[in-house]
């Protein structure tokens, strides 16, 4: 009998709980998205890969067993019969075509690859967001003159978009000469239209939403509406795209390096350049191509997994 009433008390307490909600702080959309992200296994796998990659890129060069540019085992190489020493205790991944330690080069190359990916994405993100943000704000809130500004900016972006990305990169490289910065600029420029269009489109749809109208009816000035309401609500797709672009930027940078437009300073290893160098010895020592290729693929996969997971986490349709 007592247990029954006790249970009932418990239930009534629960009822009271329902009536008066607890007094904790609210959870913003970003926090909620982050919670969802943490629950997604793909996000965790992606984050682990990227964490490793970052760690290697940052501390790796200080810990490598051999200098990356020293041709310590040049004497052992039999170029004419295609013999390079394979993996062994001293050289875990073997020796490359001019007698350098492949393992050390891979580790040091991670930093270069990360640099190319991040810098070129940042270039694209910064320039693209600027153009897209201005165009979006003008188109969404600027009235007639705003639409004119938007028209001019977007036609420029369309021109960029119309050019094949590799061709664009090659012409940039031709203009600036081969080199790491060329690759970064080229890859960055290619992603400009993507970011610009994305942010603009997202901003225009936000500018037509009711809460912007509500802010207007409060009497808030348009530039302030653009900055406090429209931009923050339009960022989510851009962030997702940036994560995904990091993956493609690394691959594209590798492709440009592979074509010989990349880093021509042999002393600084980079995965794309290593892949390009290895092609001549593909039949003799395929590992020289497979290892950097694999590294590129795994890193790109990490970014893609994280990006897709972020897309899911930030998607309003999955909210609730």
């Amino acid at each position: 009998m007592t247990t029954i009433t006790g249970k009932k008390r418990e239930k009534i307490d629960r009822l009271a709980e329902l009536a008066a909600r607890d007094d904790e702080r609210g959870v913003s959309l970003w926090q909620e998205a982050f919670r969802r992200l943490r629950r997604n296994p793909a996000a965790i796998v992606g984050a682990v890969i990227l964490g490793l990659f970052l760690l290697i890129a940052i501390v790796g060069p200080f810990l490598v067993p051999h200098p990356a540019d020293a041709q310590l085992w040049k004497g052992e190489i039999r170029d004419n019969i295609g013999y390079f020493p394979g993996p062994r205790a001293e050289n875990w991944f073997g020796v490359d075509h001019i007698g350098r330690d492949e393992f050390s080069r891979m580790i040091v190359g991670a930093r270069q690859t990360l640099l190319v990916g991040v810098v070129s994405t940042l270039i694209g993100l910064a320039v693209g967001s600027l153009i897209g943000g201005v165009a979006g704000a003008c188109a969404g809130l600027g009235g007639r003159w705003g639409r004119a500004v938007d028209n001019v900016l977007m036609r420029f972006v369309d021109m960029l978009l119309a050019m094949p990305s590799l061709l664009l990169a090659i012409s940039v490289a031709a203009l600036l000469g081969a080199g790491l910065s060329t690759v970064m600029i080229a890859v960055g420029v290619v992603s400009v239209p993507v970011f610009a269009r994305l942010l603009r489109g997202s901003m225009i749809s936000q500018a037509n939403s009711d809460y912007v109208l509500a802010a207007t009816s409060l009497g808030v000035k348009k530039p302030k509406i653009a900055l406090t309401h429209v931009v923050p609500n339009s960022l989510a797709p851009v962030i997702v795209q940036a994560t995904l672009t990091l993956a493609t930027a690394i691959i594209e940078a590798a492709a440009l390096s592979f074509l010989g437009l990349g880093n021509n300073d042999a002393s600084i290893p980079e995965w794309g350049v290593m892949l390009a160098d290895a092609q001549r010895y593909l039949d003799a020592a395929p590992r020289l191509a497979i290892l950097p290729a694999l590294a590129i693929i795994v890193t790109a996969l990490g970014f893609t997994l994280l990006g897709e997971a972020m897309r899911e986490a930030l998607d309003p349709k999955l909210r609730k």
């Binding site: 959309l29 009711d210 509500a214 802010a215 009497g219 309401h229």
Partner: peptide
């Protein structure tokens, strides 16, 4: 804009008329 203080609006869809990133 100054006049707007004296005339306000209530919207149909309370979700879309509130900025999802602002707290109350």
């Amino acid at each position: 804009r100054t006049m707007r203080r004296r005339m306000q609006m209530i919207f149909q869809d309370p979700m879309s008329s509130l900025d999802p990133r602002q707290n109350v």
